[in-house]
Design a binder for these strands. Structure first.
Lengths: 150, 150
DNA sequence: ATGTTATTGAAAATGATTATCAATATCAAT
DNA sequence: ATTGATATTGATAATCATTTTCAATAACAT
């Protein structure tokens, strides 16, 4: 995603295009990882000393309001952020063992699942007026080791 | 859910059954709403002045670790909590607005979804040796009101 | 009843995010 | 290119939910 695309988007929404914002967008565009505000700030600090954490938050806020950013609450009070790519899958399941707390990421989705997710999101959108930006599926159970350890 | 059931559960996990915990469980059992820790605290304060917010958090923590509580991160740093009922109705989606924290329960499952959930659980079981006992789907997005409020 | 130890509530600490504010930078209009 | 209105910046302080600490108390196995 070239910078001038983002510049246009910011200007289009009445916001200005600034050096800190460009740095933040460059970073977000280059990675596909979920980053916290602090991680973004620390990454940028090397190439852009003097940038403020506050500015990171403000830029993320604008991006979210424009609908280009996923905010992923962790439940610890911290959020992770990622640009919404106009393509599909960053979907993943969590398999959580209720005995030992182990968490397994499960990313092998089948076609069928992806389709259903899309359909469901469409339905939720229509019914509740929600603009869905992300989802989180968690399965709870007992892992292999804990089943044997009895 | 009668109190003595909870008493047994707490004692069974090495925890003690105390007056504050009974008050909290009574409240949670009586409601089906998603409550924040502070809301629980404020509700209890009337009938149990002197109860501490800290104790609410600690009790919620135990319940979550025992697997009887859903913790729903709002993205605002705040979490909402609800008891997991052991009946059918436990299957529902959460629609969470990452702007204002609103949570909507979505229970209108379509046949297709239920089927897929079963299939997926089978697959996860086979592949990872997990015995799945529950699941929790959450969708994040921006609600109607927040989309309009610009 | 007693002793061990988990629990309690108040207060302080933490950690992420947000508000404040004076200085600065952007950019539309000249 | 210069100007002027105003959005943005970064440092600092403030908020807000949740955790930690700790001495006093309560639960419960014996």
């Amino acid at each position: 995603m070239p910078s001038h695309k983002w510049r246009k988007r910011f200007r289009g929404s009445g916001s200005r295009w600034t050096a800190p914002r460009e740095a933040i967008l460059n970073l977000l565009s280059r990675t596909s990882k979920h980053l916290s505000a602090k991680e973004i700030y620390q990454s940028l600090f090397r190439i852009y000393p003097g940038i403020g954490l506050t500015t990171v938050y403000r830029t993320l806020d604008i991006l979210e309001k424009m609908g280009y950013l996923n905010k992923i609450p962790l439940g610890t009070g911290e959020n992770k952020y990622e640009l919404i790519t106009n393509s599909e899958e960053k979907h993943h399941h969590h398999l959580i063992c209720t005995q030992c707390g182990k968490v397994i990421d499960y990313t092998d989705f089948v076609e069928e699942e992806l389709e259903l997710i899309n359909k469901t999101e469409q339905r939720l959108k229509k019914k509740h007026g929600f603009k869905i930006t992300d989802h989180n599926f968690e399965f709870y159970g007992i892992c292999k080791e804990c089943q044997e350890r009895r």
